[in-house]
């Protein structure tokens, strides 16, 4: 479905004021979000190289950790079956964390670019809903995240991940990641709206992500880390999400960890969305 397909219909209407149900502000606000979402999705399709390379990096991480570093990692856990936890099962949550966090850089860069090129300047002079620019951007990026997660799941299965807790628990884990991803995208939107250009957006995003992803249980268990670091690692949002979804995907107590994850997600939405909207309004 592209914007172009709708234009192939024959138009009978002469009056530009003809439109669906009058005065329904919500309808038009949603239509605006849809229009911007489509626009961003079309861009993904027209730049397949960008999409390709954004999945290549996580794939390389899968291979790197599965076959190079994984053998050196000593895991203490066991699977629900009682068998020793294989590293590939441990790895899946970390790979999701990595794909989702680094994938979000695209949101920051994309928004900074739209500000830079002047597209947002045009949007500001249109009678559209203001928040649609941000909502459409983040929704399109969420769709991209779904795509990346599907690719990573296939990749995981290829290198030996065999869904030890079953499909339903796995889907719950993926759902949790996607909700988290959407909250995180608003953080990247803040970065994109605060950077002076797209290069800066990338430079700002990286040092924020790096400690969150690597000072976490993404690729190695935490018990060999120094005590002070463990405190950060097990409480920072990405760490909590990794622990919660790992428990869902390979077994272990989930209730508390999922609860903490949801708390982080709600907190992030509550803080990041207003900041992003405020940055969008202020930036001119």
């Amino acid at each position: 479905m592209t914007l172009a397909t709708s234009t192939t219909k024959t138009a009978d209407f002469m009056s530009p004021s003809t439109g669906p149900s009058s005065g329904s502000r919500l309808y038009w606000a949603m239509a605006d979000v849809l229009t911007i979402t489509k626009r961003n999705l079309i861009r993904f399709r027209r730049t397949p190289d960008a999409l390709f390379f954004s999945t290549v990096q996580p794939i390389m991480f899968v291979l790197l950790f599965r076959y190079v570093f994984g053998g050196a990692v000593k895991l203490g856990g066991t699977l629900p079956t009682g068998a020793k936890l294989p590293y590939v099962d441990f790895l899946m949550a970390g790979i999701f964390a990595q794909s989702i966090s680094f994938g979000g850089i695209g949101t920051a860069v994309g928004l900074a670019e739209d500000l830079q090129t002047g597209l947002i300047e045009r949007f500001r002079a249109l009678p559209m809903a203001r928040f649609a620019v941000l909502a459409g951007r983040t929704i399109a990026d969420l769709v991209r995240n779904v795509f990346v997660i599907v690719v990573m799941t296939a990749m995981g299965a290829l290198v030996g991940f065999d869904f030890p807790t079953g499909g339903l628990a796995f889907i719950a884990a993926v759902a949790l990641w996607l909700v988290f991803a959407y909250a995180l995208l608003w953080g990247f939107a803040v970065i994109g709206l605060s950077a002076s250009n797209s290069e800066t957006a990338q430079v700002i995003a990286f040092p924020i992500l790096f400690p969150l992803l690597f000072a976490s249980p993404a690729f190695v268990p935490v018990y060999d880390m120094p005590g002070w670091l463990q405190g950060f690692v097990t409480h920072q949002p990405l760490g909590v999400l990794i622990d919660a979804t790992r428990a869902l995907m390979v077994g272990g107590p989930t209730a508390s960890l999922v609860g903490q994850s949801l708390a982080w997600i709600v907190g992030m939405f509550a803080v990041l969305v207003p900041i992003a909207v405020w940055r969008y309004r202020e930036r001119s």
Partner: peptide
């Protein structure tokens, strides 16, 4: 984004 219907836009 100017709130025109699909038909009019096309």
């Amino acid at each position: 984004l100017n709130r025109l219907s699909h038909e009019v836009v096309a």
